[in-house]
């Protein structure tokens, strides 16, 4: 494995703050992600994880702070520009285009980097095969079940050919078998496609096995970061995230 310092920094966030009215959802967070890493982002409900993603993906600008992507300052750019630069994301609450087939959903993403509809359809087909939805291509996305919808979110984002992929709880609501498959898929996305990934996940086993490094948020603030082993031993994390009871049980 290449040492941390030799790798290119894909994403760097410095002193990011997001306030909604009086509420500080993200409080002075700094983090960085290196090329080829899978970085975990954990924290209790309402810790500000999705809010952080939304700023990186351009849904809204940070109240203050800087975000740079591949060396370029990007804070405040709109969503579609972030995507064109190479930041793909999935939604915690799936957002399929219910009026379109699974294939057409993916074509919308594939058009991001394709010159014409024909090549976009081809790429969308390949992407759907890759995520294991190839057999459901012509079905209306209205008729998919939750595990399939999570895969569709993945396929759509992947089809845009991102350099950095933000995965917001792609395993939530899945049974252990299905989430095991998704873990495998996320790994393949990094290994076979060379895409750098940030994952938000509540399933601890998943995040611990997948991540090279983990950031821990608590009420908007970063409380710990490091390798999975370091983080799981950090007393601050045990107290704020795992909860004393849960820790005692383990």
């Amino acid at each position: 494995m290449i040492a941390d310092k030799e790798r290119r920094t894909v994403l760097e966030a410095r002193n990011i703050v997001k306030q909604f009215g009086g509420l500080t959802a993200v409080n002075n967070v700094s983090m960085h992600v290196n090329e080829g890493e899978i970085v975990g982002l954990i924290g209790a409900n309402g810790a500000g994880k999705t809010t952080l993603f939304n700023m990186i993906a351009g849904v809204f600008p940070p109240t203050s702070g800087r975000i740079s992507f591949m060396g370029q300052e990007i804070q405040g750019l709109p969503c579609h520009k972030m995507c064109r630069l190479g930041i793909g994301r999935t939604y915690q609450i799936v957002k399929p285009f219910v009026n379109l087939s699974v294939l057409d959903n993916t074509v919308v993403g594939a058009l991001n980097q394709c010159k014409d509809v024909k090549s976009a359809r081809e790429k969308a087909r390949k992407t759907l095969d890759f995520v294991g939805l190839g057999h459901r291509m012509d079905v209306s996305s209205r008729n998919l079940n939750l595990p399939e919808l999570k895969r569709l979110e993945l396929a759509r984002a992947l089809a845009t050919e991102p350099k950095l992929l933000l995965l917001d709880e792609v395993m939530a609501g899945l049974n252990p078998t299905d989430s095991g498959r998704v873990i495998e898929l996320v790994r393949r996305i990094r290994d076979e496609r060379g895409i750098t990934i940030i994952v938000i996940e509540h399933v601890m086993k998943a995040i611990m096995t997948l991540s090279n490094r983990i950031y821990v948020l608590n009420q908007g603030s970063l409380v710990a970061d490091g390798t999975p082993e370091e983080v799981s031993k950090n007393p601050e994390v045990i107290k704020s995230y795992f909860g004393e009871k849960r820790y005692a049980k383990n």
Partner: peptide
């Protein structure tokens, strides 16, 4: 394709580079 996507979910559409 873009208009059909906009028709159902504008936020998701813009996240795909539209």
């Amino acid at each position: 394709y873009y208009l059909a996507a906009i028709n159902t979910n504008q936020e998701a559409t813009s996240s795909l580079g539209v």
